[in-house]
């Protein structure tokens, strides 16, 4: 009888652990921030290369468009990371889902950047 109860308790504990997310809030928050920032990197690149007014603003802000681009991305990464961590965004996500999103965001941004400059290589 006792043995059966212990087994039941173990099964319940295992089920609870399986249903819980296995991610720490900072790991998840900054991971989500990484996804957003990676995509933002490609978007900023396209916008500044297409719009000369945006490029001029970025040059004027910190002396060089690339410096402004980098500082802005780092700023967004930290702020979003803190906000997502505090708000508990994506609380039900696990490491596998985050891995797919991070990998996807890196692949998409790399493809956008490469394709954007590809005509220069072909020319």
């Amino acid at each position: 009888m006792k043995k059966t109860n212990i087994k039941k308790n173990k099964n319940i504990q295992t089920a609870v652990i399986k249903n819980k997310t296995n991610m720490n809030k900072y790991s998840l928050g900054f991971g989500l921030s990484l996804v957003v920032t990676n995509l933002l990197n490609a978007v900023i690149l396209v916008v500044k290369e297409v719009s000369s007014s945006v490029m001029n603003v970025m040059k004027a802000a910190l002396g060089h468009h690339w410096t402004t681009h980098g500082v802005f991305l780092l700023f967004v990464f930290v702020i979003l990371g803190v906000v997502f961590s505090i708000k508990g965004a994506g609380a039900k996500w696990d490491s596998r889902k985050l891995m797919y999103y991070i990998s996807g965001s890196v692949i998409i941004s790399v493809v956008i950047i490469t394709v954007f400059f590809l005509p220069y290589l072909i020319a």
């Binding site: 490609a42 690149l45 681009h69 980098g70 780092l74 400059f117």
Partner: peptide
């Protein structure tokens, strides 16, 4: 150079 300087941000954040 253009691709390198922008993809580097992805590496930095990772």
């Amino acid at each position: 150079m253009e691709v390198k300087e922008h993809i580097f941000f992805a590496m930095l954040l990772l």
